[in-house]
Write a protein that binds this DNA or RNA. Structure first.
Lengths: 341, 341
DNA sequence: CTGAAAGCGCTAACAT
DNA sequence: ATGTTAGCGCTTTCAG
């Protein structure tokens, strides 16, 4: 019993056990269980029966080492509690369902050093590919990804310098386009509410683009408000109350995400503001769960599922490519902005 | 170049490469990289430097095979798009952060056969433990878990027959307690809205308990409404509209989840109903994001984070236990029910 | 169609 | 404090 974990109940079943039970060689069992090569129907049946009877579960660790093939795709995202990331995973999962590949998820909690560690852990399993959210990583993480020798795809963002392939949208453009829409609809006293500091580079870039868009029209951002912690109705409501108390004459509020915008919407409605005339609102992401709010919030689709799917497609194709795929986010007017002038 | 994946760019770096660069044996490198055994500071530094310089990333596949130790914990849940599951994962993750263990997530899409396959895949990686949502599995899945020889914990539910350990709440009790609260507050014409069919066994059990609770008071469920697909504001709103059109004299609506209850709340408020006097509402789960709705919905805490943490704790303790840990969900009154009579 | 031999990259156990 | 040896369970390769 060499090197066996002291807690192991029973020694693990091996190919050898199945081979003995079926009266064939290990090799034949291996072939049957992987549907590889020619095996006579008679032996095939015998092997399957023996395996089932014994309750044999193949050891992928050994298989992977021997074949140098690991059908895993590492996916590194900041968090699971922000709904955007599960959506990305949904797109990845759906695409990989048609392949032998399986996603393995790691989370970085928006911390670059944690991300570096998670990427290292992932790579140490020698996966068939790696998908990482965002373009901002530590130098060491970038080096690891560059030298991994497997397809690597950075997702969600294209404003920056990808290590290899990238699939996403330009958040700078998204912010800029939103600013143009708002300006074209006659709003001028505009506030921004959301996360602008810390780890959320994409929100920061949207704000950057937004400022640029306003600038084109000679409009300056009237106010901005940032928060720490999770987005949600409470956060949106609180920020909105604060800002409108400070500057009651604002006529537009742009939020970093629909979740916060929803809180703001509820606040405005409760306080008798006329939307979209007195004040307009817009968010970002387009979340299905929010269909059913008193008004549909103006937003921009962040193409999450499509991004996940495209990234998975690149991995599945096993191309060590450096393709840059920029998806076009579409403005969704909703009911919280005036029609275009 | 035996057995090498044709797509591999460069041959992978091995311990041997680092050993040569540092002028020591493979074994010494292995020891340094794992902080095991005594190594002189001089060699330690040399080894680290060589490893860093070369960009060596250890091969966990080989390490796991040799040591018969895999620091992975399989977690099988129905989906990531329902927020309850990320919360469970949060609890697991936080607890495992203090250990060398890492969670690996698999999703079953509420399908028992898919779940069976996912469990099989998980076990074939020989993880250190397995956490599975729910108590309902295929016979084969149950057999695999029983024979896995690793700690297995079923989570979220304790109403049934666990394979090994279980951590969760009694959803029958949760439904029953909610019924009692509602009855005690004087509501009598009560409708249920939610998923009762299909894969959501826990919602089904809550309804079962709810019926039992009403029964105790001689009250029958006045109406029920079930939906297919995702919960959300739109779904809650639609079901509510339907039910209240059918039976305008209902005085209470019990939802399978807060997400649907939120949609119902918004519908009722818009239609000028007086909550909680004309009509009361209650949901289930207690989601933070919903703080900030016009009213706090009466709900019951489903102890998600705690369940995840406790399950992870059992795995980390590496006990092949069959402990049954039933957590106590607490009723949260909110603002959508009348005070107790 | 089936089997035998060799070895994947690493670590446990036993030297020294 | 460091090295040597012998596998882990499987798959590739080659031989029948």
């Amino acid at each position: 019993m060499r090197g066996r974990n002291p807690f192991d109940g029973k020694p693990q079943l091996t190919l050898r056990d199945v081979a003995e039970a079926a009266g064939v060689s290990e090799m034949t069992v291996s072939r049957v269980l992987r549907n590889r090569g020619d095996v006579s129907d008679r032996t095939r049946v015998r092997v399957f029966e023996a395996a089932r009877e014994l309750g044999y579960v193949p050891n992928k660790i050994a298989g992977a080492l021997a074949s140098n093939r690991v059908n895993l795709v590492g996916v590194v995202i900041p968090s699971l509690s922000n709904m955007v990331f599960p959506d990305i995973l949904g797109g990845i999962g759906k695409m990989l369902d048609d392949t032998p590949l399986q996603p393995v998820i790691g989370t970085s909690h928006y911390d670059p050093d944690t991300e570096e560690k998670v990427i290292y852990e992932m790579l140490s399993w020698r996966p068939s590919g790696l998908i990482v959210a965002g373009l901002e990583h530590t130098t060491a993480a970038r080096a690891m990804m560059r030298n991994a020798g497997i397809p690597v795809v950075e997702v969600m963002d294209v404003d920056g310098d990808p290590v290899a392939a990238a699939v996403g949208i330009s958040h700078i453009r998204a912010g800029q386009d939103m600013a143009r829409e708002i300006i074209a609809r006659g709003y001028r006293r505009i506030g921004y509410l959301g996360s602008g500091s810390g780890g959320d580079h994409r929100a920061r870039k949207r704000l950057e683009g937004f400022r640029k868009g306003l600038d084109e029209a000679g409009v300056a951002l009237a106010d901005s408000c940032f928060y720490e912690g999770m987005s949600g109705f409470g956060t949106g409501r609180k920020m909105t109350a604060e800002m409108l108390t400070r500057l009651p004459d604002l006529d537009f509020l742009y939020y970093n995400t629909d979740m916060n915008a929803a809180g703001g919407l509820l606040y405005c409605l409760e306080n008798g503001m006329r939307i979209p005339d007195d004040i307009g609102l817009a968010g970002f992401n387009s979340f299905d769960v929010l269909d059913g709010l008193p008004m549909r919030i103006a937003t921009m689709d962040s193409c999450r599922t499509e991004i996940g799917a495209k990234a998975a497609e690149l991995i599945a194709a096993n191309a060590l490519s450096d393709a840059l795929i920029a998806l076009e986010p579409t403005f969704l007017e909703g009911e919280t902005v005036r029609p275009r002038a």
